[in-house]
Write a protein that binds this DNA or RNA. Structure first.
Lengths: 221, 221
DNA sequence: ATTACTACGCGCCGAGTAA
DNA sequence: TTTACTCGGCGCGTAGTAA
């Protein structure tokens, strides 16, 4: 089991909750997520099953999968190695409700000056738009702490005489999906955070204004 | 950069401290560690360099490598994904000195009944022998706590009428090297722990009785 | 829409080897 | 001892397609 895609697949399934229960997946989108074709995903999934790392059941045209204890062990061991490398991570929780932005998020994200840095430093191609969250009062301090932390800086630039400032970024999951939380240097609303990801989060989670969401921001001490 | 070996290589280099400084490596043993040939390790290393994920310098016949910020970012992102999956890990520190066992460690480890389970559950082929550590008094409580934790159980068995009990096991690094700490069910010395790994730790770290070592035991809450 | 088969061809791994 | 080249074979990823 040193085949790399197998490992990535296992991780992807775990991220979808397949350690605890059978989750419904499609070979196509699970493959897309880790960068392989539907056919390859299909082949690797059946390989994982043969090796006893997952269990599968048909579910209509789709399938349900669950990771076996042996599969979980593999992931654990890798996680422990990363823990040995980086030490214990901090997870900062934020909770709040979806609100509508004024479209500046989209405007910013589309600027190639930021976009190329997002691809490079956050390693995904951002969906053009941000999800704005109004953080509940009792989480505002957590959000404020982030403003003082430094993880990834998207450097500002000047375009046609207009100045675009630095943007602070943090890897973060929203509803368990990995994306990033961004804080523009001169943002002033202390209780509003913006999330970006490689998909439209509004569509993916069918979010409407006022819906409650949970964000986990990841940091290294 | 979804090539899996590249990722594993990067992790292996990080484990050796290449995030902070140039470390001397050999393509042969770095390859061996992740299960590829010297040639492939060489090729992948130069690919990593081309992609700007590591920097290399010749050092006699060997080379020194250091991971670039871009490389560190990739590892971080993966670590955060694992954190999202598993939550925050616990790291229990133990410190003590090397002592000589009575050879029972070796005797036990060589029993196929345990060995096959080590291969399966800890995912390495154990060097036939254990390293015994006498834990300093102020770390004994940490060691005692482990006796009550449950991570991996190597099930006991009966052989020729003799009963071999369950053995509790935990992933652990010793001097940064990933192995496992094992606690036989009926072990009585509360301040002595045994470490196993896929190499002779005594040889690898040139340990003599009385040398101080540091152990990190990894657990999930 | 799915999954998963067969075919095919490229990419990659390792043996051999040079320096 | 090293690293890293060339080269041959095959593993594996994808296209096409059936169910």
């Amino acid at each position: 089991m040193n085949r790399a895609y197998a490992q990535m697949l296992l991780r992807e399934l775990a991220l979808r909750g397949a350690m605890d229960r059978y989750v419904i997946i499609s070979t196509k989108d699970v493959g897309k997520r880790i960068g392989i074709s539907q056919q390859s995903a299909s082949r690797w999934l059946s390989e994982l099953e043969t090796e006893g790392l997952i269990r599968r059941e048909r579910f209509g045209k789709n399938m349900k999968v669950k990771i076996t204890p042996a599969g979980i062990n593999i992931l654990k061991r890798i996680y422990y190695e990363y823990s040995a490398i980086f030490g214990i991570p901090k997870i900062i929780k934020l909770k709040g409700t979806v609100i509508s932005g004024l479209g500046e998020g989209r405007y910013y994200i589309m600027k190639e000056g930021y976009r190329s840095q997002i691809r490079e430093k956050l390693m995904f191609d951002p969906y053009p738009g941000t999800l704005n969250i109004k953080v509940y009062p009792n989480y505002v301090d957590n959000a404020r702490n982030l403003r003082e932390a430094n993880d990834i800086i998207l450097k500002g630039f000047v375009e046609n005489g207009r100045k675009f400032g630095d943007v602070r970024a943090f890897f973060a999951t929203i509803e368990g999906y990995m994306g990033a939380l961004i804080i523009p240097e001169m943002s002033h609303y202390k209780d509003i955070v913006e999330i970006i990801a490689d998909v439209s989060l509004r569509e993916k989670f069918r979010l409407k204004d006022g819906d409650e969401v949970e964000i986990n921001v990841y940091l290294l001490s």
